[in-house]
């Protein structure tokens, strides 16, 4: 009887002891979990801010470096997708050799994957496009430097010049203006060089740039995704043979039409009178 009573008292005391022990542990556990959650979120947030700052710094350095370069040459191997009417996506490619000599010299040789070649030249006065296989060229006058000429070529003449933004000194402002978000993806290696991989989003295009680390922050690869277009096609460009001091001669930028080459117009130059049927070729006729 005495033993039973002692056992009951012992059990009761043990339970009390257990409760006293557990209560503060449970409270501490809850507090610690809340604190851990808070500090984890805070640490994640500050890390993201840091990464975004790194991404912005890398992109800005690249943009300013290219914009301030007086001369450069680079080879660009690119590919892009075209969604056909059937829904099938086809990839095409092209190689470009680009030579920039600021303020007035631009020389671009392009070879498409079907073998067709184009030449785009700017010498400070004329911007010219030449297609040897067709024996034709078109030329427009534009004074003001590469920036003006390139913008005129694309915006007003409606011509195609992939990655034209990289040719202009407006690159830093243009990227900054268009970019809605910018993130640092990772530090990686491309062509044996350590690079920053950053990803930005504009209203209409998601872009990724791989930028060389160090004193010459040059792009080694750019991928553009046209997210609002059916099929979300991409454009990918691989840069190689960057040269920041290429040997250039003025003759490289001026166009001297070979014999038998005809001058034709830009489609965008068709005057309004075209649609009224009142223009005559004599007014603005093309020349050889």
């Amino acid at each position: 009887m005495q033993n039973k009573r002692q056992m009951r008292i012992g059990t009761a005391l043990s339970l009390l002891y257990l409760m006293i022990l557990i209560a503060p542990v449970a409270w501490a556990q809850k507090q610690s979990s809340e604190e851990s959650e808070f500090s984890r979120m805070s640490s994640t947030s500050s890390q993201i801010v840091k990464e975004q700052a790194t991404a912005k710094d890398a992109l800005t350095r690249m943009a300013e470096f290219l914009a301030k370069a007086q001369k450069f040459s680079v080879n660009i191997k690119s590919s892009y997708e075209v969604q056909q009417e059937s829904g099938q996506k086809i990839e095409f490619g092209e190689n470009r050799k680009v030579i920039v000599s600021r303020p007035n010299g631009l020389h671009i040789e392009a070879e498409h994957s079907d073998g067709e070649k184009h030449l785009v030249l700017y010498d400070g006065r004329h911007i010219t496009v030449f297609t040897p296989s067709e024996n034709v060229y078109a030329q427009a006058t534009k004074i003001g430097g590469i920036d003006e000429a390139v913008m005129y070529f694309l915006r007003d003449l409606g011509m195609r010049l992939p990655l034209a933004l990289l040719l202009t000194t407006r690159l830093p402002e243009e990227l900054d203006r268009r970019t809605q978000t910018l993130d640092y993806v990772e530090e990686t290696v491309m062509d044996g060089k350590p690079v920053h991989h950053v990803a930005g989003r504009t209203e209409t295009v998601d872009y990724q740039v791989w930028i060389t680390e160090g004193a010459n922050p040059l792009p080694l690869q750019i991928v553009l995704t046209y997210k609002n277009v059916e099929g979300q096609p991409y454009y990918r460009a691989k840069f190689s043979d960057w040269n920041l001091n290429p040997k250039v001669k003025n003759a490289l930028f001026a166009f001297t039409p070979p014999k038998e080459v005809r001058k034709i117009a830009f489609v965008a130059q068709l005057p309004k009178t075209v649609f009224e049927g009142s223009a005559s070729p004599a007014e603005t006729g093309e020349q050889k």
Partner: peptide
């Protein structure tokens, strides 16, 4: 390529923005 496939499209522009 060359089988009547179109080479033109948004991605051919290689632009950082695209006005649809």
């Amino acid at each position: 390529a060359g089988g009547g496939f179109s080479r033109s499209g948004a991605a051919a522009s290689g632009s950082f923005s695209y006005s649809s």
